[in-house]
C-alpha cells in the first residue's frame, strides 16, 4: 500500500517529467513513511530473535492459517499481490503484442513510405535474440538467478543445521548469502550493459558480428520509450539487398511484388515503437526493481550472517526472504522467454 501511495503521488507530482505542484508532495512522504514503518516492524521482528535468548515468532490463530508463522503468511499474501502486479504487466504486453501489427509484417506488407513513421510492434526479442552475443547478458542473468535461488536455499539449509559447529555454520551461511548478493549485483550490472552500455567484442569475434567491434545496447539501437522514428537495418531495403546472407524480402510478400512492379520505391521504414518499448522497459524494469530490493535485503542479511546472527532457531528470516527471492526468479522464468527470446 505504501509503495502504491508513493508511486501514484510521485506520478501525479511529476507528470511526464514536469513538476505539477506541491499538492502531492506530502503524500509521497506518507507512502515512504508506510513503507519505512513496515520495514521497521519486519526488522524489529527479525531482531527480536535471540537478543536475550528468547525466540518470538507469532503464530496465526485464525482459520485457515492456524499455527503458521504470521510473517510466512504475510509473505505469501504479499507475493500474491505481486503476482497480480506482474499479471497486469503481462496482460498489457499480450494485448498490445497481439493488437498492434508486428514491424516485420508491416515492412513486408509494403504499407509504408520512407520518411513517415508507421505504428508497429517491435519486440525487444528482435534485437536481443538476433545473435548469441546479444542474448548473452540475458542468458547469463537467467543462470545467475537460478544459481542464486539455489544458494539462498543452501543458506537456509546450513542455518537450520543443528549438527555443525557454530563457526562453520556462520561461514557457510555468510558465503551462500554473499554469493546470492553477488549474483544479484551481476544481474543488475548485466541489465545495465544490455540497456545502456553494450560491450566490445575481441577482434577474432568481429567476423561473427557482421564485422562490428561492439554489441550495441538497446539505448544505442534506439529502442526507447519515446522512439517515434525508430529505424533498423532489417527494415531497410538497401541494406537487405547488400546483405542477402542476413535478411531477405520474401518473394510472396506484397512489398516484393510492389517493388517488382515499381509501385514501391523501397528505402527505410520509420517506425513508432513507443508501445513495444514501453511494455518491455516497464515489465523488465519492475522486475529489476525487485532485484534491487532483494539486494538491500541481502546486504543486511549477509552482514547479520557474518556476525553469526543466524541459528537453527531463527533461520526463518532467510526462509521468508528466500520466498521473495524465488518469486523474483519465477517471474524471470516468464519474462525471459516472452520478452527476451520471443
Amino acid at each position: 500500500m505504501g509503495v502504491a501511495i508513493f508511486l501514484f503521488s510521485l506520478a501525479a507530482t511529476f507528470e511526464w517529467g514536469e513538476f505539477q505542484g506541491w499538492g502531492n508532495i506530502p503524500l509521497i512522504f506518507v507512502g515512504l513513511g508506510v513503507v519505512s514503518f513496515s520495514l521497521l516492524v519486519w526488522w524489529r521482528q527479525d531482531m527480536s530473535f535471540g537478543m536475550h535468548g528468547e525466540i518470538f515468532e507469532p503464530k496465526s490463530t485464525g482459520a485457515p492459517f492456524q499455527n503458521i508463522d504470521i510473517r510466512k503468511v504475510a509473505m505469501w499474501m504479499f507475493l500474491m499481490s505481486e503476482m497480480m502486479v506482474f499479471t497486469a504487466l503481462f496482460s498489457t504486453y499480450m494485448r498490445y503484442r497481439l493488437g498492434i501489427p508486428n514491424c516485420k509484417t508491416v515492412f513486408h506488407s509494403g504499407e509504408w513510405v520512407e520518411g513517415t513513421a508507421v505504428t508497429c510492434f517491435e519486440p525487444a526479442g528482435h534485437l536481443i535474440a538476433s545473435s548469441w552475443f546479444h542474448i548473452a547478458p540475458g542468458a547469463i542473468n537467467t543462470f545467475a538467478l537460478i544459481v542464486s535461488s539455489f544458494t539462498i536455499v543452501q543458506a537456509l539449509r546450513y542455518a537450520k543445521k543443528k549438527d555443525i559447529d557454530e563457526d562453520v555454520r556462520r561461514r557457510k551461511v555468510t558465503r551462500y548469502l554473499g554469493t546470492t548478493w553477488f549474483l544479484a549485483i551481476v544481474f543488475l550490472t548485466l541489465k545495465m550493459v544490455e540497456w545502456f552500455l553494450g560491450f566490445p567484442l575481441p577482434e577474432f569475434l568481429h567476423e561473427f558480428n557482421h564485422g562490428d567491434s561492439t554489441i550495441k545496447s538497446l539505448y544505442a539501437e534506439g529502442y526507447l520509450i519515446n522512439a517515434d522514428n525508430y529505424q533498423h537495418h532489417a527494415f531497410d531495403t538497401e541494406y537487405i539487398e547488400k546483405h542477402p546472407e542476413d535478411y531477405s524480402i520474401p518473394e510472396d510478400s506484397a512489398l516484393y511484388a510492389m517493388m517488382q512492379d515499381g509501385s514501391h520505391q523501397g528505402g527505410k521504414m520509420f517506425a513508432n515503437i513507443q508501445v513495444s518499448a514501453t511494455t518491455f522497459y516497464v515489465t523488465t524494469g519492475t522486475h529489476g526493481a525487485h532485484v534491487l530490493g532483494g539486494i538491500v535485503g541481502l546486504t543486511y542479511m549477509t552482514l547479520k550472517a557474518a556476525r553469526g546472527g543466524y541459528t537453527p532457531d531463527n533461520a526463518v528470516s532467510i526462509e521468508y526472504f528466500g520466498l521473495y527471492w524465488h518469486f523474483v526468479d519465477l517471474v524471470w522464468v516468464l519474462v525471459f522467454p516472452f520478452f527476451y527470446l520471443y
Binding site: 511526464w16 494485448r95 498490445y96 505504428t119 519515446n226 513507443q274 508501445v275
Partner: peptide
C-alpha cells in the same frame, strides 16, 4: 490480453502511440 479482437486499434486516444505528450 487475448480475446479483445481489435486490441490496440480500439483503445482510447490517450492510450495509443503518439498521444503521450512525449
Amino acid at each position: 490480453g487475448l480475446t479483445h479482437p481489435d486490441a490496440a486499434s480500439s483503445l482510447p486516444d490517450w492510450c495509443r502511440p503518439g498521444t503521450y505528450g512525449l
